[in-house]
Amino acid sequence: MTIRPGAGDGTSVDRLTVRYRKAHALDGISLSLGSGVTGLLGPNGAGKTTLMRVLATASIPSEGEVTVLGRDPRVPAQRQDIRRRLGYLPQTPGFHHHFTAFEFVDYVAILKEHTDRRGRHDEVRRVLEAVGLSQDRSKKIKALSGGMRQRVALAAALIGDPELLILDEPTVGLDPEQRLRFRELIADIAARRPVLLSTHQTEDVAALCHRVIVMGRGRVRHDSSPRELSEVARGAVWFSGERDPRALAGWRTGTGAFRNIGSPPPGAELAEPTLEDAYLLLNADLPAHTQEGSTP
């Protein structure tokens, strides 16, 4: 299933290409975003961050069309309007380490043109509470743990209740309890507007996303629901007493049996496939399985 670019106040790219010297970071991709959480999966260098930077108006495409919230980011006035309505958490947030958590998020709110001081400070307190940092809002950024800094950056992305939320590796550094709270928060936001989420955590995709896009080498390799993606690996995952040398990947499970991924031998004990299994198969370029449901 491939969703093609739409119109109106939507967000889409059409034949989007980004080149760095002779290399293609993105190679002519087309997709559009609807409501709910769309997950981006792919190895490092697949083009996920480049796509997100283009949609966040932080990078300029070499070719193709881009529409964000119905606006053209190439037009300065429309680009500024996009930034007012957008929430963006980059892969590596830039902090002013001498700011407190409150001061940093307030600074971002000022950049987004929240000019009423009292209303702005109410909004800063709201988003800090949403990410569980109300008690730590007066601490300096440099004194916070990595997970807490990540939550400060997420709070900054939530300023103004954005109409589109773009999150690049948002759960890095979060402990299990914080990740569960993050999922609750994002699921609530996605009930009202689009969220684009890039992550290496397939369990976050399975838990949150109604749609998952697998990228590789600057292209969309697969675009479907998480359940449909998992089906790509059906018949390609099996258990054995020892690691099968023919397997692309295999590991000993808690029961002592090995779980193998690849082309099973005749009579193998097949396992129920997971989203992670399918993702590994797609990255391994198995002809028998990467073609099913994929988007070249």
Score class of each variant (00 low, 15 high):
L167K: 11
S134D: 08
V124N: 06
H98E: 04
G147R: 13
M148V: 00
R117M: 06
F182G: 05
A190C: 05
I141E: 11
D188E: 15
H96W: 13
S134T: 11
I166P: 11
I159N: 00
A153L: 03
H98S: 08
H114E: 07
A187E: 12
A156S: 15
Q91L: 01
L185S: 06
F182I: 09
E123K: 10
R181M: 07
R183V: 01
A143N: 14
R126F: 06
S134Q: 10
P176K: 01
L185V: 08
E103A: 13
E177C: 02
E184R: 15
T92G: 01
A130Y: 00
Y107A: 09
L158W: 14
S138M: 08
D175C: 03
V172G: 05
M148D: 14
G119V: 01
A187Q: 15
F95I: 03
L128C: 10
I166M: 12
G119M: 11
R192P: 04
K142R: 14
L167A: 07
K139E: 07
P170M: 06
V172M: 06
S134F: 05
R125C: 13
L128W: 01
Q135M: 06
F182M: 12
G173P: 12
A109D: 04
V131H: 02
T115H: 12
G132D: 07
Q178P: 06
R149G: 02
A157I: 02
F182E: 09
I141W: 10
R125N: 09
A191W: 05
Y107E: 02
A157H: 12
P176W: 01
G147W: 04
F182Q: 08
A153C: 07
L144C: 12
T115S: 08
R183P: 03
A157C: 09
V152C: 15
G132C: 10
